[in-house]
Every structure is written in structure tokens, then in C-alpha cells.
Amino acid sequence: MGTHEGDYDSGRLYGELGDRPPEPGDRARNVVRNVGELLITAGMVVLLFVVYELYITDLFSAGKQREATAALDDQWQHPGADVVEGGERTNKIELEDGKGFAKIYMPQFGSDFHFTVLEGTSDKTLESGPGHYKGTALPGEHGNFAIAGHRVGKGAPFNDLDLLQSCDKIVIETEGSWFEYRMLPKEDEAPKWDSVRTKSPKCQKVNVLGADYSKVFGRDIVKPSQGGVISPVPYAPAGTKPGAALLTLTTCHPKFSDAQRLIVHAVMTLQVAKNPANPGQPPAGMLEDS
């Protein structure tokens, strides 16, 4: 640092050679500096919000999902705890808003891919995990068991939904049963399904559905306003009687946007009642990607 008067060359920060250093009371310079600092701060805040959306919400949601799973496990292990007096245990699934009632597995994404599915699709519920559209069918029922889930942040259960291929398994576990659903043929595969099917052992049980289902394919991308994807018979006029047990997953599309919805339709191919002696044990092969 220069110490004697008039030596501006060492430690200089501003301006052209020969400029004098800024006057302390230079108002315009102060204003510009403050505006610049505010803009940089705003940029940092926006970046921090991106970090929040992509990572911090995952942390919050992981905790909520753990709680929901623990509550569901507890309920399955101690059935009857909340049965009203004189009530009998049935196979009927108890639905309570925001509470878990089933688990979803996608063996394609690894054996650690499982989420507890909660009742309802409010923002708050979807923070805890995939949510069941109220009023749609229950697992195994004829109709359409429809589930929504986040694709980015908040645990992102459906992050890789676009990687699911036709005939891939989606397994649902309820208190009493295991249900194996398989993704339906995609639109380009449907016309030549018989030849596709013979090539893949996965697809043996995936039959082409009836005429009512002519517009239902394994993967679809729709506008958010197309609520018909979760109808008992998707896209069909109201009142069409469902002839199959479907599963529909919805999430946002493209990633990081809500302009469209990515839809996956699957059909039930197997239902196995749980062994009462060992209800926690999945049937052989059920959770394998086969």
C-alpha cells in the first residue's frame, strides 16, 4: 500500500489512469452500487429458491414419507386398533384424508423404490408421498386406481416415470393383498402388440383391452385440463362400465414445468392375497423386475 500523498497507483480499484479516487460523498456512485448489490442479492435469493425446490423439499418430504410409512406399518401390524366397537375386520380399505393406505413398488427402478400412497391429492398430502385421487377405484377394483406424484422435488416419487416401459411392473401392496399391474402397450406398439408380446416374457399377461379402451395406451402426455385420464374407463364418455382394473399414474411434464401431464396407464395382471401367517412377506418374484 502506498503511504505518501499522491500515490494512487498501489491499491487502486476504480477508473482510468489519472482519475482521482472517488469522493466519499459521491451520491450517484452510491446509488448505483446499492442497486447493483440489491440485484446480486435478488439473484442469490432466486438461486437459493432453486436449491430449496430441488433439494430441501426432498429432505422435508423424506421425513413426512417416513412418518406416513411408519404409521401405515403400525396400522397393519396392529389391526383393529381403530376399529369401532362391535365392528368387524373386513378386507375393506380404510381411507382417511392424508393418511397412507397402500404401498407402491416399481421393481424396474430397484428394490429400494417404494412409497406409501396416501389418500387425496392436496398439495399438503402430495408433500408426503404419492396421493390417490379421491373417488377413483381402489387397488384391484374394476375401474381406475389413479395416483398423482411429484416429479421434481418433494421426494420426487415419479421422477423417472418417463423411463417406465410397457409391461414393466407396478406393484401395489395393501393390508390384505398384493396387486401386480403392468404398463399397457405404448401407442406405437399397440397395433402390432401380438408380435411385440411374443418377444418379451414380461408381456405374456398384458392383453389388449376391449373397444372401450381403444384410446388407452401405456404412456400419454396430456393437457392439465384432461381429467378424463383418471375416469373409470379413461377418455371414455361418463357412464361407460369399466371392464378392467387399471392403474393410472400422473405427474408433471416436462420436468420442471406444469404445462402438461405425463400419464402412465397399467392393467392389473395378478392379485395375491397375503398370507395371514406372514403378511410382511411378498409372494415369490412379486418384487422382481420380471
Binding site: 391429492t121 398439495d123 402430495l126 396421493g131 385421487y133 373417488g135 398423482a148 406424484g149 411429484h150 416429479r151 422435488g153 418433494k154 415419479f158 396430456v222 392439465p224 385440463s225 384432461q226 381429467g227 385420464v229 383418471i230 400422473t250 405427474t251 408433471c252 420442471f256 414445468s257 406444469d258 401431464r261
Partner: peptide, 10 residues
């Protein structure tokens, strides 16, 4: 904010 919807309208 508007960009986090994953459901379809019912």
C-alpha cells in the same frame, strides 16, 4: 406459485 401441479383437473 404455479409450477408444481401434478394432478389433472377433476
Amino acid at each position: 406459485l404455479w409450477f408444481n401441479n401434478v394432478t389433472t383437473e377433476q
